[in-house]
Write a protein that binds this DNA or RNA. Structure first.
Lengths: 217, 217
DNA sequence: GCGGCGGGTGATATCAGAATCACCCGCCTG
DNA sequence: CAGGCGGGTGATTCTGATATCACCCGCCGC
């Protein structure tokens, strides 16, 4: 067995899967599996003892799950890279792992070659997401960026804007919301100012782009 | 030449690179390069004419750059997948492309096999980021999520919190900010409420986790 | 020319948040 | 026992945002 490879610890509650994976990794000269654990709690001790370069960490485990384990590991000062290896495409798990500081997130359906490539990337400080989950991250990321850049409209302004986006006139909005036409116009003025739009058509267009309102039927 | 492969359009202003890439792709039976362009503007017309499955798109181009091209393409209703292929690891380019709706972002240092794998993932609707840039996306993503979940503290409250985090007492903060100790205590009370903390130590700890303040020296 | 519509200016009232401060109490240490 | 410190309750003032409305003007179509 190589003594110079990248040191790994494999954490998974399914013994058969874990042993199979360890066998697979033992066949790869770049790596050296130095420990195993069946849950997060065991993992903490094994990692403390063996000080691996990378931890392969399942998400769904009893006693202490993967995301909590990442949080605990990140709370310590000793650096260790963490690659989540899971079947879960659940967004709470995915975003939770990323927030907690995981270096990678791949799925158990990955090919052995993919796993090797991923581990090598992680080892050199890069981060990797499974293609199956990258879309969810990018979609949430885009949404957050837009939300952050969007100006804040009051509840009433949003109501008026939604009416505008469905093609209603000032008079129709007035009847709809039980306020005077002059009030509607004032709200529209503030909306135009906040969105830096020249007219209501541009305002609606910008609001849709910024995700302030959604297209209806 | 295969007539059943995934149809590609290659967009890059460097003719030598583009022709070399096309040659490489011609050697891959899964793909069929149906058009080329030297900038975003040309690309719009070529894409309109050939209706590819995937556009390989550089970022830095004259006349119309890659991000603007993505925006233009996404403004049209015809679906086309877009893989950015660039040397740029600049965050503005990266985040701009993601926001605009690119399906992938890889670097020109990728191996041909990586490019093939990436294109196959993109073709089946998945998204891919180069490992070199994934870290930047995940870091920004984590920051945005934390920022979004963090309660809003006023400017004064943040000033007080920063003083607390450097170990100052109520009296020292009072002298520091030229306000009475009672005022400092009121600000602290509001901070404890907003962070749902029991005392100032917990408040500082939570604020650091949420990214509201940063560790100093 | 009139009515309908959109865009603009200005005004008023209310409310919530921010920022300020006084005072009280308990705990701990010297 | 006194002083220092942290945590708590309550009050006042100010400011900016929100929500309301009246009135004016230009454009367009009938």
């Amino acid at each position: 067995m190589s003594t110079t490879g990248i040191k790994l610890v494999v954490v998974d509650d399914h013994a058969l899967f874990r042993r199979g994976l360890v066998g697979l990794l033992d066949g790869m000269p770049e790596f050296q599996v130095v420990g195993e654990a069946g849950n997060g709690q065991e993992a903490m001790a094994v990692i403390e003892k063996h000080k691996p370069d990378i931890v392969l960490l399942d998400v769904n485990m009893p006693v202490m799950d993967g995301v909590t384990t990442v949080q605990m590991l990140r709370g310590r000062s000793a650096p260790v890279r963490i690659l989540m290896l899971t079947i879960s495409q659940n967004e709470d798990d995915l975003f939770g792992a990323i927030k907690a500081g995981a270096d990678g997130y791949i799925l158990k359906n990955a090919e052995p070659d993919d796993l090797r490539d991923t581990l090598l990337h992680i080892a050199r400080g890069e981060r990797v997401l499974a293609p199956e989950v990258t879309g969810a991250v990018l979609k949430a990321f885009s949404r957050l960026v837009s939300h952050e850049q969007a100006p804040l409209l009051s509840e009433r302004e949003l109501e008026v804007l939604n009416c505008l986006s469905s093609g209603q006139t000032t008079q129709q909005i007035s009847s709809n919301l039980f306020i005077s036409e002059n009030t509607v116009k004032t709200h529209i003025r503030h909306i135009l100012e906040k969105l830096e739009a020249s007219n209501r058509t541009e305002a609606v267009s910008k609001a849709l782009q910024l995700g302030l309102i959604q297209k209806t039927g």
